[in-house]
């Protein structure tokens, strides 16, 4: 499972936790999950943060650029339902308002172990 990470307007809390999920303690990589540099190489998107107006179109374009079949993982409360920033100025909505979401990881921010667990459900290992 190769994922392209898209920061759609995050506070960077989720990014720190994602980095930890791929660091030696949890090491999501050993379960077959990988972060890649281009949606062309990816099986899906790992989206963090509430979707701001500036990032709505790029998120959509990244989604379009990912080959099918593809999954979208919404990571963190903001990505799932807007969280703290729901309805705030400059916000287009949560991720499922822009692209269809397959997996949700709640938490503000979700812990590395929770992220790893959700990715294991995708990789099946």
């Amino acid at each position: 499972m190769q994922l392209r990470h898209v920061d759609a307007g995050s506070c960077n809390g989720c990014e720190i936790e994602i980095a930890q999920a791929f660091a030696p303690v949890c090491d999501a990589g050993r379960f077959g999950a990988r972060l890649v540099a281009s949606p062309r190489h990816a099986d899906g998107l790992l989206v963090t943060g509430v979707v701001t107006k500036n990032m709505a179109v790029p998120l959509q374009m990244t989604f379009e650029a990912t080959p099918r079949p593809r999954v979208v993982v919404a990571c963190g409360d903001c990505a799932v339902n807007g969280g703290l920033f729901a309805g705030a100025y400059g916000v287009a909505g949560s991720v499922h308002d822009v692209v269809p979401v397959d997996v949700e990881i709640p938490g503000c921010p979700p812990e590395p172990s929770e992220i790893t667990e959700a990715l294991r459900r995708l990789t099946g290992r």
């Binding site: 281009s38 949606p39 062309r40 179109v57 790029p58 998120l59 374009m61 990244t62 379009e64 650029a65 099918r68 079949p69």
Partner: peptide, 17 residues
Amino acid sequence: AELRSPRRAAAWGCGRD
């Protein structure tokens, strides 16, 4: 069926408009 009907997508430009 998915592969039999190829999909045309724009060239990837890092999400730039």
